[in-house]
Amino acid sequence: MPSTYTPATAWSALVEGNRRFVAGAMEHPSQGVDHRTELSAAQSPFAVVFGCSDSRVAAEIIFDRGLGEVFVVRTAGHVVDTTVLGSIEYGVEVLGASLVVVLGHDSCGAVTAAAEALRTGVMPTGFVRAIVDRVIPSIVSQTSADHSNGTNLAVPSADTLGREHLRHTVDMLLSYSAALSTAVAEGRCAVVGVEYTLAQGEARAVDVRGAVDA
């Protein structure tokens, strides 16, 4: 069955779940044996969460949600490719999710590596370079020439760059995916860029596209 959530009620559910998580009062909903059995036939998540592949930022935990409620897509640095876009479109168009959350966080290793590559000109080796290559376009506009300290570029803090990368990712999803852009324009879905702080456990909206106010 399709989700009965609107973009506003879906966002409210995640906000309330995160408040419980921050307070240490999690309810762990929809995790019982009976519910697990019910879900074996079909799923109807109310939200898609596209986040960073970081062991400290598990969407179902930080939003205190259960099985079948959140369709999670993860890549290091929440970098976008065609399979990510296809997965998000599947969550919205096929499974009926009414909200897409792009979940970034402070102290992101991918953003830090991209900032270091810009500052020093030295790229990481192996396939880690592919991740950095996809983060750099999001943050390069935030750098500026500065020869006073012996470096070629002045690079803002990793957290400032991470916030910029988060907003850029939201822009990319909506510009690359006609299906997602149409869903937002029609009010069937909203996209929210969320910044998560590791120490406090708080998830805060920094970029909202669509109507998420009740």
Rank of each mutant, 00 (worst) to 15 (best):
T37R: 14
V184P: 03
G51E: 06
V92F: 11
E93T: 12
V155P: 12
G24T: 06
S175N: 12
Y176I: 01
H165M: 02
G86S: 04
V70F: 06
F21R: 03
S141Q: 09
Y5G: 00
L14G: 04
A110G: 12
R20H: 04
H35S: 01
E89R: 08
A97R: 07
E195S: 14
V192A: 08
Y176P: 00
G162A: 04
L166E: 04
V155D: 05
T120C: 00
G24E: 06
S141T: 07
T82V: 08
E186S: 15
E116C: 04
T75A: 13
T143P: 05
G68Y: 12
Y196V: 11
H105D: 13
T6S: 15
V70G: 12
V101C: 11
Q200T: 15
A203N: 03
L118H: 02
A115M: 02
F127K: 10
A10L: 04
A190V: 08
G91V: 05
P45M: 13
G96D: 10
V100F: 09
E60G: 15
S30C: 03
G91I: 13
V84H: 07
T6F: 04
S141F: 00
G162W: 05
S30Q: 11
V132F: 11
P7K: 03
R19A: 15
V92P: 12
A158H: 07
S12A: 13
